[in-house]
Design a protein around this nucleic acid. Structure first.
Length: 764
DNA sequence: GAGCACTGC
């Protein structure tokens, strides 16, 4: 039996106490403990149903409230509730299970509770964790489940996200958290000993963190036979997970499947491919508005510019229609939706559609024009029509030139299905796909490529090494990244001295991993005390890890640029970011000040938040916080400090046309127009390479070649292929050693006595 | 002389 149920071997004394106390109680069932007779991991659905009906809350020992009973009745109607018996049968028997539950099945709220009744984590000081890809989901689901369980949020049921730990150690036994947060925990406790069961929700989204966690958990399941794992996914790609988590290699992990509860959506395709999807989308929206029954429209486009443009055009045409034919066409409002919109404007998607223009006139309609944010992160009720041109911007990583960029690409079938589903949330709907059925069948990929195949993995590799994963190439990935991507990551970490030549974590790398930053940034942060500017580098790293702080409204570009010019430091954009933050602080974090200076208050607040978090980590690892007082010296120190993390992101000026060439891979790039440098320095470091209308480098600072050359391991010039940048570096290295020579010469001269050194200096 | 798909630590 111990073999069947390894969990029993780890029983905690208090649990035995509960069981024996309950056994002694000979009174009627209703006066017994609600969990009377519960044996962990051998609980069945009948027992749980009884416990749920009990007058007492088993976890607080308080009588259940009326609200509890009301919510319980609603819970009983969820599809997943009807299959509780089946769930416990599978869960009791297996260590790892895969669950598929379509939208509306209730899996996210119910399954973790079912698990809690089986694990009884509160009796052994353990937790049940359920991960979510997004913070808002973790928070809102935790709140809902706390209500369902009749407990206060943050006590028995809590959540944990970056910047907010809403749990109570020793009390919380059911925790919703972001997948990134659990990955961080795995870094420092690779056995995840606090948890009795870990549930990975929304696994089909294949976020980088979920993918890495799946790999870690698969290995961990062997070491911790008492740990149970549930992979929850919404679509039918479950077989891939079942095979991945196969027991002893061939028997797929068992599947627990629950139907969803949505309305049917009728799908239409175009007869011919559309040459211009934006134009076709606008036409389709207007066609729906003229000819279809009332109901709101959701149109998917790829980015801010496209969305704002389409909004204007639709509005113009719709106003024309309304003017020419008010009898049959109602008013229409267009609401743009993308992540960089301020939350207040995002809220507009929940506004009701406009009222009809006359008492008996046709009803108004709302059109939401959105990026992919409406595909997963935000749901809008009342959508009946979806218009899907079949494209989205997707991140792609090119390890050869070490560049992540955004490309407009065709979506996957899974994504198209998800979009169509958005039309059936409140009643039957229609989805208009602006591509042919043939293209859908034969051209679209089944699934969107998981993020791990499209990302720079420097950060991830460092986290994995810190979690004790020795061989990253052999690590059991659900989908293995390109070897070249791993090589690039290992190479960067080695140059930054986070990993030694054998790929082992160095003391420096171990601290770097603790910072929620790209490795280049954690490196400069840790190195900054040497340059006596750690307070400043702290600010700069925080500013670099939040969205763009500069606002540039379409109709006030000149004003915005003028405001920016006043804050610009000509030696480099990094110094400008420091200046912006300091000015923000000097102005008491005033929102009016940010508004008047065309700065994003949201991004600055976020930067301040990140800065505090990073500062705490610095204090924890005794990274000293110091500054030099003299501003000129300080700026110089900062520029030098930046070089010890960004020596691989350097560009050299070529000719007089403002062209730059990146080091080692010799890409021709231009300074981004947002760059604030007043001259075109010979050598610059850059924070990012962006590929838009042409290759640009963005957030750029003027540096000296000898600061770069200090990183001798990277600048082993004799092994570099010949190029103009290499020759320029060699020239400056020669000059540098020349300087050393003359210094030695001077020293020798002064040793010999005589006042010639003074003379010499005057001559020079 | 241009941009920020979306998350997350």
């Amino acid at each position: 039996m111990t073999k069947e149920n390894p969990y029993l071997a780890h029983r905690h004394p208090t649990e035995r106490a509960i069981l024996s106390a309950s056994t002694l109680n000979s009174a009627s069932a209703s006066s017994r403990e609600p969990l009377y007779g519960f044996v962990p991991r051998m609980v069945n659905a009948e027992q749980v149903r009884q416990a749920l009906e009990h007058d007492l809350n088993p976890f607080t020992k308080q009588p259940h409230t009326a609200q509890y009973k009301k919510i319980l009745e609603a819970r009983k109607k969820l599809p997943v509730f009807a299959q509780m018996t089946e769930f416990y049968k599978i869960f009791n028997k297996h260590q790892i299970i895969v669950m598929v539950g379509e939208t509306g099945s209730g899996k996210t709220t119910q399954i973790p509770q079912f698990v809690a009744y089986s694990d009884l984590p509160h009796t052994k000081n353990k937790l049940v964790a359920c991960t979510q890809p997004r913070r808002v989901a973790a928070m809102s689901v935790a709140k809902r489940v706390a209500d369902e369980m009749d407990v206060q949020l943050g006590r028995q049921v809590g959540y944990s996200i970056r910047f907010e730990d809403m749990t109570e150690p020793g009390t919380t036994f059911l925790k919703y958290m972001t997948d990134g947060m659990l990955l961080r925990e795995a870094m420092n406790d690779p056995d995840l000993n606090r948890y009795s069961t870990i549930i990975l929700d929304e696994a089909h989204e294949r976020t980088l963190a979920t993918d890495i966690l799946m790999g870690i958990l698969k290995g961990l399941a062997q070491r911790r036979t008492d740990l149970k794992i549930i992979i929850m996914s919404a679509t039918l790609d479950a077989l891939k997970f079942q095979k991945y988590f196969a027991v002893s290699g061939d028997t797929p992990a068992p599947l627990f499947k629950v139907p969803g509860r949505t309305h049917p959506v009728e799908v239409f395709y175009t007869q011919e491919p559309e040459p211009d999807y934006v134009e076709a989308a606008i036409r389709t929206v207007l066609m729906i508005h003229r000819a279809e029954d009332p109901g709101d429209i959701l149109l998917f486009l790829t980015g801010e510019e496209e969305i704002e443009d389409a909004c204007r055009k639709i509005k113009l045409e719709a106003d024309d229609l309304l003017n020419s034919d008010p009898e049959s066409v109602g008013p229409l409002i267009c609401i743009p939706l993308y992540s960089s919109l301020p939350p207040q404007q995002q809220q507009r998607i929940f506004d009701p559609p406009p009222k009809s223009s006359s008492p008996d006139g046709p009803p108004g309609r709302k059109v939401v024009i959105s990026t992919n944010i409406a595909e997963t992160s935000l749901t809008i009720d009342g959508i009946v029509y979806v218009v899907d041109p079949g494209f989205s911007k997707q991140k792609v990583y090119n390890p050869r030139i070490r560049v992540e960029s955004l490309l407009v690409s065709p979506i996957s079938k899974a994504s198209a299905q998800q979009r169509a589903g958005r039309a059936g949330r409140t009643k039957p709907g229609k989805c208009f796909r602006l591509y042919t059925e043939k293209d859908f069948m034969s051209e679209l990929e089944e699934q969107t490529h998981p993020e791990i195949l499209r990302s720079n993995l420097a950060n991830t590799v460092l986290e994995l090494v810190k979690a004790g994963i020795k061989d990253l190439v052999k690590f059991d990935y659900v989908d293995a990244p390109a070897p070249e991507t791993l090589m690039r990551a290992l190479e960067l970490l080695n140059y930054l001295a986070a990993l030694d030549d054998g790929g082992n974590l160095t003391a420096l790398g171990s601290i770097m991993a603790e910072f929620p930053l790209d490795p280049q940034l954690s490196k400069i942060l840790i190195a900054s005390p040497e340059f006596k500017c750690s307070n400043e580098i702290l600010t700069i790293t925080a500013m670099l890890s939040v969205p763009n702080v500069w606002l540039r409204p379409n109709n006030q570009r000149k004003e915005a640029d003028a405001a920016k010019a006043l804050l610009t430091v000509p030696d480099g954009d990094h110094l400008t970011l420091l200046n912006v933050y300091n000015s923000y602080k000097d102005n008491q974090y005033d929102k009016n000040w940010t508004w008047n200076n065309y700065l994003s208050a949201r991004a600055l607040m976020q930067a301040d938040n990140v800065r505090e978090q990073l500062k705490r980590t610095m204090e924890r690892f005794e990274v000293e916080l110091i500054s030099v007082q003299d501003q000129k010296k300080m700026f110089l120190s900062i520029r030098k400090a930046l070089c010890c993390g960004f020596f691989m992101q350097v560009a050299h000026k070529e000719g007089e046309k403002g062209n730059y060439m990146t080091l080692k891979d010799n890409q021709v790039v231009a300074l981004h127009p947002s760059c604030g440098l007043d001259t075109q320095p010979e050598w610059v470091i850059f924070n990012e390479f962006v590929l838009t209308t042409r290759p640009y480098i963005r957030t750029v600072t003027d540096v000296q070649p000898d600061w770069l050359l200090e990183n001798v391991q990277f600048f082993d010039l004799q092994n570099w292929p010949d190029s103009e940048t290499k020759r320029a570096l060699e020239r400056s290295r020669k000059k540098q050693s020349g300087k050393f020579a003359s210094r030695f010469e001077q020293a020798d001269v002064s040793k010999q006595g005589g006042g010639s050194s003074k003379k010499r200096r005057k001559q020079g």
